[in-house]
Design a protein around this nucleic acid. Sequence first.
DNA 1: CGTAGTGTTGAAGTTGCTCAATCTTTGTGG
DNA 2: CCACAAAGATTGAGCAACTTCAACACTACG
Lengths: 227, 227
Amino acid sequence: MPCEPPRCAACSARSEGLCGTFSGGEITALFAIARQRRAPAGQVLLWAGEPASFCATLVTGVLKIARQDAEGREQIVGLLFPGDFVGEPFAGACVDSVVALSDADLCVYPRAPLEHLLEAHPPATRLLLRRALSTLTAARRWILTLGRRNARQKVASFLLEMATRSTQGDRLELPLSRGAMGEALGLTIETVSRQMTALVRAQVIELAGHRGVRLLNRAQLATLATL
Amino acid sequence: MPCEPPRCAACSARSEGLCGTFSGGEITALFAIARQRRAPAGQVLLWAGEPASFCATLVTGVLKIARQDAEGREQIVGLLFPGDFVGEPFAGACVDSVVALSDADLCVYPRAPLEHLLEAHPPATRLLLRRALSTLTAARRWILTLGRRNARQKVASFLLEMATRSTQGDRLELPLSRGAMGEALGLTIETVSRQMTALVRAQVIELAGHRGVRLLNRAQLATLATL
DNA sequence: CGTAGTGTTGAAGTTGCTCAATCTTTGTGG
DNA sequence: CCACAAAGATTGAGCAACTTCAACACTACG
């Protein structure tokens, strides 16, 4: 059995996402078309309207998927975390822009060879289908939040969503600024800020700098998210 | 070559969706596991929380995919039209309910045999992936509408979206009541109604009964949807 | 230690929601 | 075929929530 490339063996996303469907021997084929890429915070990886030249596995960092209004106002329609698959195979031009919110490491696959590889390796296509369906479910959860919840509930929901992605104990480091939270929640910066302050006053959270949040009462936060 | 079942040959959804990936000979395998089902308007096909026992191709009619708030308020997160694929293969329990908005005909596939068939027929899995990705794109367009547009723009967007699905000339028959439109747009019945009236007064549309709409000025409607 | 970028707070203005009454449409039974 | 009932839609008035505009405070980084 051919041996697994050392870089893959050491990769923190090795068992996640696309890579997880390739065995130690098979991964060589994926590795052969992959290229490492490091993106600083703020860098645009894919531009809406441009042809989608590559897909990738996100190794470290957080990306936003955003769409622009006719007026230029931006709405965040998805976030990507380590292990997530970036881009759309089989798609034409990008509909959304993908931007790094923090410094990020990616394992990039050019579109054409990736699509060939998918044809040859059915489990990968099935995984992408399952991923797409679960992303769809998440997008619909977001639709529910945007359509039915008020500002308080939106902010509380968002904090809980972030908490499921990454917490160390009750400490949470937000990957987004207040402005970006507003873009995600369909609120203004000011409204997000006021709701955060209200949560602090209600002793549900505590702030530590602009990005740091300590969850003091998760049960209460969950109640506020829906009620 | 084995001949195509007459029911498939005569089916208006034959070239659409899942069926379209099966040739005249191959379709027999899909037909063998399929069962016809007719659902009257209002019938719940899949209940949120219940196990998802089947998938289907929608042949005629319109279905809504809806999700409930903790408070019981409903948000429509998707609509299904003839040719669309109903349900989620590889999923556990249903997250959303699926309800017939009009009388509907379906071609129903039990989950287990369908999943076997998908494994044996890779083009079908690829089609479902492409479909899932385009449904995701549509869901994200909806997120943009819910997050960034006011009531006027939401209603105008919705009418345009419906117009892309089915129009005869400038006549459009809405598959939803005002109440259901509100559930889809995150608005109340009253607000939807007021916006419709405003569009009539602006001579952009004309109403014919509760469900009938005539599009008098599509360009203007498109402007109102985004501006 | 200063400055630029972010975040917070306040006051006033708009938008969409709630509650309540009235009007249309549609479908059913006489 | 018409009358009537029930469901759905429209309209109005008052109110609450979110946005806008503007000033000020924090924090993080050079």
